[in-house]
């Protein structure tokens, strides 16, 4: 299915609904069993070291608090550029993710590094604002230098079956992003069913998402293995059908190196190894990075370092 054909199919509310409801259903028991089976993969020694470094390079180091300050963001940017000052072989993370008003601080601090500046937008996290306010939010972030924009979909419209409205917003934001990469947050914890996760993934991808992202991190449950599995399948199938590569970002609840490796196994065996790079897979997290660093030094030295051996930020 070429991309042009898809947007034609998605042209009216009725044809979009037919397209989305024509996607094969997801059996809850089956998808959860498959995710649980893949979680038993045993990743050791050289494979573990490779996975830890790969995971570090995929982290979107995130702070999204009302209490965020330029100081806090600067600390985070330092950590992002050089996660472990004692070991220059540790790769930098993929991006630093902040609220739009702190984008200038992050952008300036990350200048000259490979680390991207990502900004949430569109009345994050609830998305409860008019489209014009959301677009202004996006324009603000992009103007301040955001390389990547993380938008939220209108879950209320989605659950009410107004798929066209959700699609229209994604398309409008896509346009407002200009050259910036667009990540579309589905907030799967509010979508409730795997069928909805698959449909929302397709709406976002048809609308022009570069990444589909599980969660804001503000709603529980956030990312889960079965949800990620459904989204990875959707990204794989869309990429295969249209030739346009779409990535997946899991966010919220990924705290340990073990969790991160389980997601990488899922990426490897479901979407395929083309997704094993920061351009196609991201992990949005804050505390995860230090556990990755701790496990990395354990793998190399054979002994665990203490928590105080790694900077908080």
């Amino acid at each position: 299915m070429p991309a042009a054909g898809l947007s034609e199919l998605a042209g009216s509310e009725a044809s979009l609904r037919r397209l989305l409801h024509g996607l094969p259903g997801v059996d809850q028991v089956g998808v959860e069993a498959r995710a649980a089976a893949l979680a038993t993969r045993s990743v050791k020694t050289t494979a573990k070291l490779w996975a830890i470094d790969t995971a570090i390079s995929m982290v979107d180091l995130t702070t999204l608090e009302g209490a965020d300050t330029p100081g806090k963001v600067l600390d985070l940017c330092g950590k992002a550029r050089r996660p472990d000052p004692a070991d220059p072989s540790v790769p930098p993370v993929a991006a630093v993710c902040v609220y739009p008003d702190l984008v200038p601080v992050a952008k300036a601090s990350l200048e000259g590094s490979t680390v991207k500046t990502a900004s949430v937008a569109t009345a994050f996290p609830s998305g409860r604002a008019s489209l014009s306010v959301k677009l202004a939010d996006v324009a603000d972030a992009v103007k301040a230098g955001a390389d990547e924009v993380d938008m939220v979909i209108d879950r209320g419209a989605f659950l009410a079956g107004r798929y066209g409205r959700v699609l229209g917003e994604v398309q409008a934001v896509r346009e407002a992003c200009g050259p910036a990469r667009l990540k579309v947050i589905l907030e799967t914890g509010e979508l409730a069913t795997y069928d909805n996760v698959r449909r929302a993934s397709w709406v976002a991808m048809i609308g022009g998402a570069d990444f589909i992202k599980t969660s804001t991190g503000k709603v529980s449950p956030a990312a889960t293995l079965p949800v990620a599995l459904v989204m990875l399948e959707a990204a794989r199938d869309f990429t295969e059908a249209t030739g346009r590569a779409v990535g997946v970002k899991v966010a919220g609840g990924v705290r340990t190196a073990k969790d991160a490796i389980r997601y990488l196994v899922l990426v490897n065996e479901v979407a395929g190894e083309d997704w094993l790079e920061p351009a196609r897979f991201r992990i949005g997290a804050s505390s995860l990075l230090n556990d990755l660093l701790m496990q990395r030094s354990k793998q190399r030295s054979g002994a665990y370092a203490g928590a105080q051996d790694f900077s908080i930020e």
């Binding site: 993969r41 045993s42 990743v43 050791k44 020694t45 050289t46 494979a47 573990k48 490779w50 996975a51 790969t54 990488l264 490897n268 190894e273 094993l276």
Partner: peptide
């Protein structure tokens, strides 16, 4: 199938 991320032996 897994040249990029081959799981090391885990016997």
């Amino acid at each position: 199938a897994f040249s990029r991320f081959p799981y090391a032996p885990a016997p």
